[in-house]
Simulated assay, not measured.
Amino acid sequence: MLPGIDGFEVCRRLRTRDDVPIVMLTALGSESERVVGLTLGADDYVTKPFSPRELVLRVDSILRRAGEQLEPTLEVLRDRDLVVDSAQHVVTRGGERLALTAREFDLVRFLVRNPGVAFTREQLLAQVWGWSFGDQSTVTVHVRRLREKVEPDPRRPVRLVTVWGVGYRWEAS
């Protein structure tokens, strides 16, 4: 409902910068609209009416996660041709730098750190997002987008695999 531009376009433009946390606050609350917002890279999607307390907690959680990314670490994780460099906040595949959002980076780093372990969507929300509640479709959307970037063939994932009835697992080489 913004004048001259919609929130989805604002999100799309902001997402070109990986370090900008995005919370969409909107009256558009259908599942398809939430999925579009999350697919475009929103870190959270809150619909009206909302509890001010819940909004503050959601924003605090996202800012806390963004602050954690500022803590320097020299960790470099490797799996096949994939390299996750935490100090530079860069992921490369076959020597090519991948354009990941901050959340996608957090997700791939977490999964590569924990190869062979199946995580539920709820566990990923808690461990990667830092949320004790939230829409689990957020995880599904981020996994799909991440597969498009890390998998040789996203339709036949060999790295980030679905564990039916559970969630997702990183298959190390």
Rank of each mutant, 00 (worst) to 15 (best):
A126I: 03
D6T: 03
S61K: 08
V59S: 13
R109D: 00
D19S: 15
I62V: 12
R12G: 08
V141P: 00
D135H: 07
R159W: 13
L28P: 05
V112D: 02
V23H: 02
R147Y: 14
S32V: 11
R169K: 15
Q127S: 10
R53T: 14
D6M: 06
Q123M: 14
L14S: 04
T120P: 09
V83C: 09
L38Y: 07
Q69E: 14
D153F: 12
S32W: 07
R156M: 09
V161I: 11
T120M: 09
R78Q: 13
E68V: 04
R159K: 12
D79C: 11
P157W: 02
K48W: 09
R145I: 02
T16K: 13
P3E: 07
V83A: 11
V23E: 04
V83L: 12
L77H: 03
V10G: 08
R93K: 12
K48V: 02
W131K: 13
R80Q: 13
R65E: 12
F50S: 02
G67A: 15
G167T: 07
N114A: 10
V108T: 10
L25W: 08
R113Y: 00
L63W: 03
V23W: 01
G4N: 01
V117I: 14
V76G: 05
I62S: 05
R12N: 12
V20E: 07
S61W: 00
G165Y: 05
V35R: 13
A99N: 15
P52E: 02
T138W: 00
F8I: 13
D81C: 03
P152V: 13
L146D: 09
D18P: 10
S137N: 09
Y45S: 00
K48G: 03
R12P: 07
A42W: 01
R13Q: 11
D44Q: 05
D19V: 07
I22R: 09
R53I: 13
A102Y: 01
K149W: 07
T26G: 11
R103E: 11
A42Y: 00
V112M: 15
K48M: 06
L70V: 11
D81I: 00
V83I: 14
